[in-house]
Every structure is written in structure tokens, then in C-alpha cells.
Design a protein around this nucleic acid. Structure first.
Lengths: 253, 253
DNA sequence: TCAAATGATTGATGGAAATCAATGAAATGC
DNA sequence: GCATTTCATTGATTTCCATCAATCATTTGA
């Protein structure tokens, strides 16, 4: 975290983490290490556009996204931007042990993150087998998530890829939610998509115009409801899965 | 590795690893651990179609691909196969610490692998900070590789995605090669693509027919030469990069 | 407040690709 | 060896999508 909003960090708000991924990780630690681990984290907010980690630099801090979206982006020599991946809530960013980043990470929206000094984190990992295994598991989850994006982008048609994206975001929302799932009962699942159509389009390998048409196709089929371009209700998860063309993305909900 | 070709494993042939990724990893270990680590590995060959790790099972062994291609595949209920990802030489497979696999891993071609007992490997990782960090670094590399596929598949046109695939395979071939690169001098780089057109098409989110046309378009532009459908010479890496639409995939050659 | 800018959407059109159908080529089995 | 199957390729047609252009909605800034 080479740049962040000054004055925006304060102590870890434990309530924010109830039922969250990090909390589940912490729960598995021995009490003494857990206390130490908890003390290491800082809560921060980032304004949209803030650079979290610069391309080619070694991250000073690592962290978790709590709310908002970070984007991994590569600036090409001709000025175009290539979006490599998205970091949504409960994803980890910054590379422990792994040197400089090959791309820039920036906040696509106003974002809330938990961060931690990288070196401090590495030392804790090195001292504790439990912490190390938690981190490894987390990393392996990230790998699965990245491979999931590959599936999502493998769809032949735009509407298929969009459906896959919405499925992934739905699951993030669902897994990150507190308490019992309200979802199986058939209520609409509300998604706050903090991406501009242009960014989504780029990420899905299509144009904003085609993307817009796909959004409205899904709405016409009663699969989603578009409240605003950034506020989507998923009405029919089964149909959405059908359109996505595979059930893989849903199996971990 | 729940199934493999009987009688096909023997002691680690050190020569095979010269200049390889694993060798570089081993070199960084303290001598005593390095000896122990080296003793853990077995060289095996797998016949095309052999199941390396079954969907839903916990891997007994983890390993590295030396030659050939493994495929991560999910069998859908209606009998179709969804290719999740490819494992090419120097990729790691099998999940340490992470429980059951969510997909099947099978050999797409006759494949040479180095494998190691998972539990033994986990114990070594737990004992040695160096080994642990090597593993972490490797895992983070895998994550980068997965994100690279996202870039490759993000291309809008079929020929673009194909070019990206060929670039990635070229780099694997190149980085895995022994000794000095013969590549910068402009010689053709020979690729043995062990995938059927249908499999490549599925992976790139297109049809075999469109894929075939893209192959021959690249050949017509003198960028590749198609000796057989499975034997491709890359004649002009610069043009190939141009068609792929970005230079990201090339930067690590 | 209003003008300007940005983003989302819609329409029209040419080009790209999926699909259907057929042929050629190679591998496989008997 | 030949028949059979599988795979790759090519052609013709339809569908999809990128692009250009225009409009509408929302946000931004003075």
C-alpha cells in the first residue's frame, strides 16, 4: 500500500468481520497468535482511482478487500489499459514472499480494506504453522477463483459470459453475507456492481453496446432486474446458471 | 495420484531437471533439506487419458509436469466436458493443505511428471521456512499464470485468442528449454500441440471450424507453419504478439 | 440553476463467427 | 488389406457482435 487516503485508517472494527472470511481464518488460530494477528490489521478506506500497488513495485502492505472493487490493471505502451482481474470483497491482495507485482492494483471504486504490514505478516507466517497453513489455503482458494474467471471468460456468447460474471458476483455476495442464507428461498439477490459498463465490457472481451444489450436481454427474460446500471437484482439463479452454460460456478454457493 | 501407469516410475533423473524450474527451487534450499527433498520425488510417465486426480478426491500425491499436458476437466451431468484449465510443463498439480479437488485432472497426452507424497511434502513444508517460501513463491507464480490465461481468453476475436494461446505455449517451451535460447536468432520455434482441435476450440470458447480458419489465417500470414495439426512452427513471434493484441504474454520470455 | 461532460442506451450496418453440411485425411479395428 | 471411425478442413448460410452514430439520463462544474 504505497498510497492511501491519509487519516482514513483506524483500529480494526471487529463487528465488520462477523461471519467474514478473515474472521473464520482468525478463529482457527491459537489464542495468543490470534491476538497478535488481530493487532496487526488496520482498517482503511481508499478513494476510487487510488493506486494500491504500483506496477513493478514490491508491496509494503498486504490486505483484504472488505467492500468495493480493486482492479489489477496493466498499462500498455500505447496508453490502453488491460484489465487482468478483479478483486472483490474477501479477496486478498499484495504478494507475501513474492517480490514485485507485475501489474498495478488500483481502487476502481471507493473501497474498504484491511491491511497489514507485509514483513510483519511474513514473520508471523514463518513462526506459526497454523498461520502458514491458513495463508496457503487462502492462496489456493485464490487460485481456484482465478481459474473460475477462466471458465467465465470461456463462454462463446456475450450473454453467457455476463451470466457467468453475475453468478460469480452473486456467490461472493452470498458467501460474504452474515447469518443464514436468505437466498435459497427465492428472494432476489441484490448486487451492487461498482463497475462502469465500459470496464465490464473490457473485462468480458466485448463492447459496452453489446454488453448493454445482453443486460437487457437478461432483464427481458426475467432473470435479473436492472434498478440502476449499478444496482442489479438477480431474480432467477437457476435460469442465470442455465444461460451461463454450466453449473460449475454455482456449486460452491 | 490415485492412478498411474504401473512400473513407469523410477528414481529422479537429475539430468532431466537441468535448468528446470524445480531445479532452481531446489538450489535455494539448505543442503540437508535439499537432499531430503530430492529423495522424495519420483519420475513417472502417464498414458494419455490416465486420471491423475479424481473429482472430489483428496490428492495422495502432488507433482510437477515435465512434458506433455494435463487437463483440469469437469464432467457435466449431461456428459459434456468442461475444460477448466491446462497444466503445461513446469506447472504444479495437486493441492497441498487444501482438501479435495473440485475437478478431475487427467493426462491429455502421454505425460512425464515428477510426483511426491503429499503428506510427506506438507511435513517438509511445515518444518522448513525455506521450503515453505519456495512453495509459496511457486503458488504465487501459478496464480500469475492463471491470470495470464484470463488475458489470453479476454481477446475479442478468435485469432487473437489463438495467438495468445500459442504465445503462452511458446514461452513454456522456451523457458523449459535447456541451455541458451536459440529463439532470439529468429529460428522457428517448434510446438507440439497435443490437443485436438475440438479441445482447443472449447478452451478458447469457439468452434473447431472457426479455430481451423484462424490457424490457417495465421499460416497464410506467414506467422506459423502447420506441419501437421499437432506440429506447429512459430515463424514470427513479433507478428504473433501483434495479433494477440498485447505484449503482456511475451514479457517473461 | 444551467451548461457541459460523462455514461448508458438504442438503432443501423458490415464483418466475424456459429452452425449446418459435406468432403478430405488420418488413425483404428478387423 | 480394407472398412470404419475419428478428426480436420472447407463451403454456404444464418446469427451474433463490433462499430459508427445518435439519443437519453445522470453527474459535474461553474
Amino acid at each position: 500500500m504505497t498510497q492511501h487516503q491519509p487519516g482514513a485508517h483506524r483500529a480494526l472494527p471487529y463487528g465488520k468481520l462477523a461471519n467474514g472470511k478473515l474472521q473464520r481464518l482468525l478463529d482457527a488460530l491459537p489464542p495468543d497468535l490470534r491476538l497478535e494477528m488481530e493487532g496487526m490489521w488496520e482498517y482503511r478506506t481508499l478513494s476510487a482511482g487510488a493506486v494500491v500497488i504500483e506496477d513493478g513495485q514490491e508491496a509494503e502492505r498486504i490486505g483484504y478487500v472488505l467492500d468495493g472493487i480493486l482492479v489489477m490493471v496493466k498499462e500498455l505502451s500505447d496508453g490502453r489499459r488491460h484489465i487482468i482481474g478483479l478483486l472483490t470483497p474477501y479477496d486478498m491482495f499484495g504478494r507475501a514472499f513474492n517480490g514485485a507485482s507485475g501489474y498495478r492494483i488500483e481502487a476502481l471504486t471507493d473501497t474498504q480494506v484491511l491491511t497489514c504490514n507485509r514483513v510483519q505478516f511474513e514473520h508471523l507466517i514463518a513462526r506459526s504453522i497454523e498461520a502458514e497453513q491458513l495463508f496457503l489455503r487462502n492462496l489456493l482458494d485464490e487460485l481456484d477463483a482465478a481459474r473460475e474467471w477462466v471458465i467465465a471468460l470461456g463462454g462463446a456468447k456475450v450473454v453467457q459470459r455476463l451470466a457467468s460474471l453475475l453468478l460469480i458476483l452473486s456467490r461472493h455476495k452470498f458467501n460474504g453475507a452474515c447469518g443464514k442464507p436468505t437466498f435459497a428461498a427465492g428472494q432476489p439477490l441484490n448486487l451492487h456492481i461498482q463497475l462502469k459498463r465500459q470496464d465490464i465490457a473490457h473485462y468480458l472481451g466485448t463492447s459496452p453496446e453489446s454488453l448493454s444489450r445482453s443486460f437487457h436481454q437478461l432483464e427481458g427474460d426475467k432473470i435479473i432486474r436492472i434498478n440502476t446500471p449499478y444496482d442489479i437484482d438477480v431474480l432467477d439463479l437457476a435460469k442465470l446458471t442455465e444461460v451461463a452454460g454450466n453449473s460449475l460456478l454455482l456449486e460452491r454457493i
